[in-house]
Amino acid sequence: MDLILDELGKCYGSTWVLKQINLTIGSGAFFSLLGASGSGKTTLLKAIAGIEMPDQGRIMHGGTDITSHPMEKRPFNTVFQGYALFPHMTVFDNVAFGLRVKGQRGGVLKKSVTDMIDRVGLSDRIHAFPAQLSGGQKQRVAIARVLVCEPRVILLDEPLSALDAVLRGQMQRFLKELHRDLGLTFVFVTHDQDEAISLSDRICILNQGRIEQIDTPDALYHAPRTTFVAEFIGLNNLFQMDANGDTEFGRTATAHSGSSVLTIRPESVQVGETHARLKSSAVLTDRRFHGDNTLLTFRTVTGREILVRRPGRGDTIELGEETMLGFPDRDCTVIPGAGPK
């Protein structure tokens, strides 16, 4: 039961907020839509949910064209941003809502609902109203309300963005466990790349209504295909390379036809003695300690800032001190055809 979006487009007035969206979400995947605000990720989720109708293209689910199906007829359920719980209903009635719509009554209903509330750990709050719950508890109710309907696909619209860091970590673990236990398809919208990377099987990166890249978190990090992705995911160093493999720091062996961009992650940059072909002398201009690692900022003789990440407290280098930076070929990623940076 794959979910396939085929040439999907959506416009408001004359502005296309989604353009040529082609993607396949495999059954049982944890699939994230990642992008900054205004990237179209929420609009895309709403198109899948049926809240927004696309102006172009098709949505297929398990071989059926569901583009024109209204949201109440789609086998998907949504966990809304801000939860959208029914404020006049208790936790029990909120969770029971979907099953009552389907005509379930009596003991069967009661058992399914109490089991689900138990599963999300809210048994002692079953008769509370949403106004009496904490943010994390409301989030659990919103998830339980959707899970109890046993949808094929669960759509989550920035479900964790309103929670504080500690609670967000707990909820991430909870979501991951749920996904593993239930084997359902999760489509997860977020602007938080760490969240997307740590939770997802595959991530679709959106930029101004277009897909930049769809890949595994590992591939997005280590093999970005566009400069946008290279800069969007994690910290990165980018510099220009011409057709001969010449860069401002020397010539590489990984030449590529036409001009391109070379990227290297902060943790792969060598500091001090180096045998790399690409290297530069640089001055340490900033040092930021993050506990388990230290982020160093260097300025090369060419005037470029280079980020370097070292484990622990980092190298014993003083601010203003000059050293050599090396960029080993094997750790550099080439983004072909990328314009001048």
């Binding site: 809240i51 109440e72 998907f76 359920n77």
Partner: peptide, 27 residues
């Protein structure tokens, strides 16, 4: 009544009549 509350009810399969009696009227 927030639009998202109505959408949440629709999302769970409720039609307009049920939404009126169980969501709009009580709220």
């Amino acid at each position: 009544i927030p639009g998202a509350t109505i959408n949440a009810a629709r999302d769970l399969g409720a039609g307009p009549i049920r939404i009126f009696w169980t969501i709009v009227l009580p709220l």
